[in-house]
Amino acid sequence: MLLEVRNLKTFFHTFRGTVRAVDDVSFTIAKGEILGIVGESGCGKSVTGFSIMGLIEEPGKVAGGEILFDGRRLLDLSDNQMNEIRGKEISMIFQDPMTSLNPVYTIGEQIEEMLTLHSSLSPRERRKRCVELLRSVGIPNPEGRLNDYPHHFSGGMRQRVIIAIALAAEPKLIVADEPTTALDVTIQAQILKLMKALVRERNCSMMLITHDLAVVSEMADRIIVMYCGQIVEEGRARDVIENPSHPYTQGLIGSIPKLNEDKSRLETIHGIVPNMFELPEGCNFSPRCRFCREICFGVKPDFRLANTEGHLIRCHSACGVSEGGNEV
């Protein structure tokens, strides 16, 4: 296992109370694996990513759990030691390419910074490597563009630059936080394809955070579905997509418009995401769940096996539900 997250808890302490943004989350990522983390905005998926990077800022705090990366316990490392890991072993791709690049440095300088920090290449070698990297992410005329500033690039091109930066130090794991959300749909597909190809080629692992099930289904080997800071379903990508077992996942998949089905209305998950300050006593999803029973309001559900091996859900009802379900 490359990354092992055990019982991670990241809380935000604010004036109005404590937000349990990530509450008891455990998962693993194997070498070369792409793990998709899916959920609505505010479900804690990004915070999970930042917790691994050690970049949780005030008022947030990792309150408990363990993060093992390549055998090292990341939570025990000092900030300086983490700087050796950030960028070099785990790198990150951000959501909005328009704001992630520093506007006052050339892209060449920004890629090179990574190499200066994490490699022992000579200046000339660094420059060569920058050109290679830009070429590999599909930027035309890379030599000529090294001295350009971010504002000379379009959104899609900037995201390619960011990918190049993320790959620069040959990391073992890439955390990609909504890497295509801010892009045009046509460009999304290109970027996803590029990322998948590059990750496979370098045999590095990836944690793909997104709210878009379509993205995940195309990319990921395994999928984790998060809701209100907790994992509600976990399994191999195909199992989760084709055979969603948690009512929330079913709702998510149901709300994707399908071209080949003639339906006059899209399915929606009714209700709204609960207030993170006042989570329900029982299952977090209970107020919105179609299959909710009495037990759901009172007791937090535990993981249990769904139909297939390695396919886990956190639900009292479920199991039978996947065959269509009987509404209560």
């Binding site: 050796e84 890991i85 990150m92 992630s100 990574m114 920090l117 960011i162 930066i165």
Partner: peptide, 9 residues
């Protein structure tokens, strides 16, 4: 944040 994620001191 991106700079921090790059491991910049």
């Amino acid at each position: 944040k991106f700079a921090r994620a790059k491991g910049v001191r």
